[in-house]
Simulated scan of single mutants.
Amino acid sequence: MALPRLALVPGEPAGVGPELCVRLAHRENPAALVALADPAVMLEAAERLALPLELLPPEAAMAARPGQLALQPVLAATAADPGHPDPANAPSLIDALLLGAEGCLEGGYDGLVTGPVQKAAINQAGIPYTGTTGLLSEHAGCEVVMMLANPVLRVALVTTHLPLREVADAVTAGALERTLRILHGALQADFAIERPRIAVLGLNPHAGEQGHLGREEIEVINPVLEALRGAGMDLRGPLPADTAFLPGTMRGFDAVLAMYHDQGLPVLKHSGFEQAVNLTLGLPYPRVAVDHGTALDLAGRGLADPSSLFAAVDTCAAMARARRARRGVPA
């Protein structure tokens, strides 16, 4: 039974990503991993951690043992200085992300796992970049949805990084329907849930209090939910966000759809930040990222917790197996 083959992009070379990948390489993993990175960056990270690391060619990924890591070289422009990102290295990071994405589209990889990036360093290099989610969406030519998950919750978002005063205008019928269709399809394809049950949060306090605290639930959200229920989706809501996350309520659902970033993600992160991962739903392949930043203050000190990267690999491998099974390919 062949392991899923995953592309692994450590992320910002001056952040904690490379050392997290070294720790990952010392673990029994549920996938064959191919790192897309500068070999010198990886070996220097291993040396700082006082851990042995043997780099293998990409074709040896299936045979890698703990302490070994298959690697496709993507050379950085300058040496990595932990804690101090150099914009000169931004092009190689973008190259690694797109190389992994292209490999997934061509069938060489079954999924993509990404470490943390430093957006400021990429923008300082003159590269227009708002995030890896947008980069991969544009590359694949498809619309996507951001979802965060841990062993307790899955929370997808209608809007992501918007100022709060812009959220209400962005929660349109079209955006809500598109998000629900992508979320529903991903739960089926990536998590093997044939009839997903989705809790949809209201936008306003108390889900609008029958129009007394806002009419978005009546005029936008309810009509979309009714139409999609008619199409066969199992949707409940709009639910008041302040009580929707009670354990007794959540046990009945496979995912929650929040209207905006800070409506759903604080609860998810409180329930298990260390194991949380960030998923890009709607791509032609599974993509899972760590749910933390570059942690420049920890870089090079060997103190960074690899739990989120471990969870990202486990999640991406499970999603790849689910997609194989759906296509009738032996897992």
Rank of each mutant, 00 (worst) to 15 (best):
Ile122His: 05
Pro58Cys: 12
Asn29Glu: 06
Leu187Arg: 07
Pro196His: 03
Pro286Ser: 06
Val145Leu: 13
Ala25Leu: 09
Glu177Arg: 15
Val155Lys: 10
Thr132Ile: 12
Met42Ser: 07
Leu164Glu: 05
Ala61Phe: 13
Asp242Gln: 15
Asn204Met: 12
Leu257Gly: 10
Glu19Pro: 02
Ala325Phe: 01
Val158Ser: 10
Thr130Tyr: 02
Leu180Gln: 06
Gln275Tyr: 03
Pro52Tyr: 11
Arg181Ile: 10
Ala88Met: 02
Gly208Pro: 07
Gly11Glu: 01
Ala318Met: 03
Arg326Phe: 08
Gln124Lys: 12
Arg229Met: 07
Leu20Pro: 04
Met146Thr: 08
Ala88His: 07
Leu228Glu: 09
Ala7Tyr: 03
Arg215His: 11
His139Cys: 01
Gly208Asn: 12
Val200Met: 06
Leu105Ser: 05
Gly272Lys: 14
Ala101Arg: 00
Val145Gly: 14
Ile94Lys: 07
Ala35Trp: 00
Arg323Lys: 04
Gln275Asp: 11
Val288Asn: 09
Ala76Tyr: 10
Pro116Ala: 09
Pro330Ala: 13
Leu239Pro: 02
Phe245Tyr: 13
Leu281Lys: 00
Pro196Leu: 04
Asn222Gly: 01
Gly111Ser: 03
Gln188Leu: 01
Gly230Cys: 14
Ile193Leu: 00
Ala121Met: 02
Arg236Thr: 09
Leu180Pro: 03
Ala125His: 12
Pro39Gln: 02
Leu296Glu: 04
Val329Thr: 15
Val113Trp: 03
Gly174Tyr: 12
Pro266Arg: 01
Gln188Arg: 15
Ala125Asp: 05
Ala77Pro: 05
Ile218His: 13
Ala244Tyr: 05
Lys119Asp: 03
Ala80Glu: 11
Leu97Asn: 03
Arg48Ala: 08
Leu43Ala: 09
Gly211Met: 12
Gly100Thr: 00
Arg181Asn: 13
Gln72Pro: 13
Ala88Ile: 04
Ser271Gly: 14
Leu164Lys: 06
Gly131Phe: 12
Cys104Ala: 13
Ala90Glu: 01
Glu274Pro: 11
Ile122Phe: 02
Pro73Ser: 14
Pro223Lys: 15
Leu283Met: 07
Ala60Pro: 03
Val145Trp: 09
His270Glu: 03
Cys104Leu: 05
Val224Lys: 06
Val256Ile: 06
Thr78Tyr: 06
Arg154Pro: 09
Leu43Glu: 14
Arg48Ser: 08
Ala320Glu: 05
Thr133His: 03
His26Ile: 04
Pro85Trp: 07
His84Val: 15
Gly108Tyr: 00
Pro151Tyr: 11
Ala289Leu: 11
Phe245Glu: 10
Leu71His: 04
Thr132Arg: 00
Leu176Met: 14
Gly141His: 00
Gln124Gly: 02
Asn150Asp: 12
Tyr129Phe: 15
Ala31Cys: 10
Pro330Asp: 13
Thr78Ser: 10
Leu303Thr: 10
Ala175Asn: 15
Gly202Gln: 06
Ala120Gln: 11
Val16Met: 02
Ala76Cys: 13
